[in-house]
Amino acid sequence: MSKQEIGSFLAKQGILIAFAVFMIGFTLANSRFLDPDNVMGVIRSSAILGVMALGVTFVVISGNLDLSVGSMMSFSTIVVLDLHDKIGPALAIPAMFAMTLCLGAFIGFLVGYLKLNSLIVTLGMLSAIHGLTLTYSGGQNMDIADKEGTWFSVFGQGDALGIPVPILIFLGLAAFLGIMLSKTPFGRKVYAVGGNGTAATFSGIRRARVVFMCYLMSSFCVATAGLIQASRSLGSQNTVGQGLELEVLAAIILGGASLLGGSGTIFKTVIGVLILGFIQNGLLLVGLQFYVQYVVTWVIIILAVWLDIAAKRGRLWSPIA
């Protein structure tokens, strides 16, 4: 390998290398870090963020953004908790999914068919859905009356085959959506629309429909995340998902997807989610407060994206005069 190739290799794999360095550092600092229990714990606590990130990955690859997923997740959580006591969990879950999918369809309609700017639309929806949630709940926290006697807790607290259910849902959904994105005609069209929407249209792809489906996918994942959240806590504030939209984007960017669309994979997003999770956990284990991870995440995001584009342009510093 020439010097240049080594440089480009380092830049391309920079995020994995940084991740490895972190893992080794944390392991040296605290031997409990790579404990199976701890690893399981990390994945479990990343599951909600992860499930949301899976859906947003579709949106980002199709060349759009979704800033509404945080407040949409709050909505799902509040709705399913409320309906749990009113119509029972068996009906509450499909009802909540239906309502959340309606929100996703609305956004998909605006961005896909009406071709409105996704940043502003989802920014507006962030606010609107937040208002909707507050109106729905009357601003009150939502709690399930009988927290002991419901099977509803299985999604957030249960175990199957010795593995926590949230992990199964996260990884199962990741596998399913990963295959969908990489192996099906729909997945191919998502990449085409995000890579060059005009060329996709000129190839007969119904771009609006593809974008619409991506938002539907995103809202489905949000509903799933809301289900896990509700089931885990069996009670919730109206703002439970607030700010998650940006953490989701952070995870996707860390995974190496371009916000311009056309690149990224489900696998990379899962890596991005896990990196965030392990960093958070590692910092806690070495005795630092949760908020230190914000600062670390900041540095890592910028380094990751910087190295990525530096590798593409072949020089470290930008050519901006």
Partner: peptide, 17 residues
């Protein structure tokens, strides 16, 4: 300016940081 990373990403990171 110096890294050429998009302002959206830079300030998204800074918002957390």
């Amino acid at each position: 300016w110096k890294t050429g990373v998009d302002a959206f990403i830079v300030t998204l990171g800074a918002m957390l940081g």
